[in-house]
Design a protein around this nucleic acid. Structure first.
Length: 343
DNA sequence: AAGCGTCAAGGCATG
DNA sequence: CATGCCTTGACGCTT
C-alpha cells in the first residue's frame, strides 16, 4: 500500500478547539522556530549576540525535532512537513557567518541535526525546505547568482547534517526559476552545486514569468514541482491531471513519488459562499479582479470543488499544502480527501 | 493586549 | 517613484 501524503509548511498551529488559547493562529513555541535580525545583533555586544545565536540554534533544532516528532505521530498519510529557512539565522550574512564556522557551533549542529534526521527517517516523515525569494539562481547579475548558490548551499548543509542528500531526492529543496537568465541560468548554477544540493533541488513554476513549460526545460536535470494554484493564476485554466505535461513532471522525479504545491485564493478576494464550483478566471477578470489579488494564499481550503480538483492529483502526487492555517488547513483537506475516497 | 516600526537579501506587478 | 508580494510575518518596543 503506497503512502499518499498531505503536508504543510514550516509552522505548527495548535487547534483552538483543543487548547485554552482560542486564537486561530496560535503558534506553539515548543514546535516552532524563533529568529533574530542582523540589525538587532549589531546593536548588541559580541558576547550577547553570540549567546543569542547559540540559544536560537539550540531552540530551533530542538523545535524542529519536536515538530517532526509531532508530525510523525500523525496518520502516515500526513507525515510530510517543510522546515523553515530560519533554523540557523544569518547563516550566510557576511558579518555573522563566521559564527556558524566556530568548532563548538558546528559540533552542536552536526550531532543535534543528525539525531533529528534519524528521527525523521524512523517516523517516515517526508521533509523539504524552500529557500526564500532572494535565492535567484538565474539572475543576470553574477554577484546575485553567487549569493544565491551560497544561500542554497546553506539549505543543503542542513540536509547533509541531517543525513540527507546522499540519495536522489531523499530531501527536497525547492526554488523558483526566478531571474532573467531563465532555465539556462538555473542549468548553469546547477552545475556548480554540491552533490547533496543536486540530489535535493527541485524547480517550481511561478505565476508571473516562468511557468510550467519553462520548468519542463529543466526536467532532465531537476524534478519539477507543479504549483497548481499559480499555474491556474498564470494560465487561467485548471491543469488536467491527464495533461501530457503532468506525465513529464512525474518522469522528472525518476521513480520518486512527486510533490506538488496546492493553495487557493484568499477568502476575502473570492465569494466564499460558492464552495461547490471552481472559480472561473474569465469571469473574475471581467469583474475587475486582478491576477495579483488571486495569488495570495487563503487561510483554509474553503472551496470543496477546487479541493476535489487538487485531490485528483493525489494518486500520483504528494500534496504540499500552502495555506496560512498550516496543519489545521491540511487536516481539513484530509477530512475531505477521506470523504472523497469512501464516497 | 494590541498596535506599530523594524528587519539581509531580488525581482516582479501594480498604481 | 513607491508599495506589496513571495519561502515564513516575528520581534521588541510602546501604548
Amino acid at each position: 500500500m503506497i503512502i499518499k501524503r498531505l503536508g504543510f509548511a514550516c509552522k505548527w498551529l495548535d487547534d483552538p478547539s483543543e487548547t485554552a488559547n482560542m486564537k486561530i493562529h496560535a503558534r506553539n513555541r515548543q514546535l516552532n522556530t524563533s529568529t533574530t535580525t542582523v540589525a538587532w545583533l549589531n546593536r548588541q555586544t559580541r558576547a550577547v549576540a553570540e549567546q543569542r545565536l547559540w540559544d536560537l540554534m539550540v531552540h530551533n533544532i530542538t523545535a524542529n525535532q519536536c515538530l517532526i516528532q509531532r508530525v510523525g505521530s500523525l496518520d502516515p498519510n500526513l507525515r510530510m512537513v517543510r522546515l523553515g529557512s530560519d533554523m540557523l539565522p544569518v547563516y550566510t550574512e557576511p558579518s555573522w557567518r563566521y559564527f556558524w564556522s566556530l568548532p563548538d557551533v558546528r559540533a552542536h549542529c552536526e550531532s543535534a541535526l543528525a539525531k533529528v534526521g534519524t528521527i525523521a527517517r524512523q517516523l517516515d516523515v517526508r521533509l523539504s525546505m524552500h529557500p526564500g525569494p532572494f535565492v535567484v539562481l538565474a539572475s543576470h547579475r553574477p554577484d546575485v547568482v553567487e549569493r544565491s548558490i551560497d544561500e542554497f548551499e546553506y539549505h543543503a548543509t542542513i540536509a547533509r547534517w541531517m543525513g540527507y542528500g546522499q540519495v536522489w531526492q531523499d530531501f527536497k529543496i525547492n526554488v523558483h526559476i526566478a531571474g532573467q537568465a531563465g532555465p539556462a541560468g538555473v542549468r548553469a548554477a546547477y552545475g556548480r552545486l554540491s552533490p547533496e544540493a543536486r540530489n535535493s533541488i527541485t524547480i517550481e513554476n511561478d505565476e508571473n514569468t516562468w511557468g510550467l513549460d519553462h520548468c519542463l526545460e529543466l526536467a532532465n536535470s531537476c524534478p519539477i514541482v507543479i504549483d497548481i494554484h499559480h499555474n491556474w493564476v498564470r494560465e487561467g485554466q485548471y491543469l488536467d491531471p491527464r495533461d501530457l505535461r503532468v506525465d513529464r513532471v512525474v518522469q522528472s522525479w525518476r521513480g520518486v513519488r512527486p510533490v506538488l504545491h496546492y493553495s487557493v485564493s484568499r477568502e476575502d478576494v473570492l465569494d466564499i459562499r460558492t464552495t461547490d464550483t471552481k472559480p472561473n478566471m474569465c469571469q473574475l477578470l471581467a469583474q475587475g479582479i486582478k491576477k495579483q489579488q488571486l495569488r495570495a494564499h487563503s487561510d483554509f481550503y474553503w472551496n470543496r470543488a477546487v479541493n476535489r480538483w487538487a485531490l485528483s492529483f493525489w494518486p500520483q502526487f504528494d500534496i504540499m499544502c500552502e495555506s496560512k492555517s498550516k496543519n489545521l488547513a491540511t487536516a481539513q483537506l484530509y477530512q475531505q480527501a477521506l470523504g472523497c475516497e469512501t464516497a
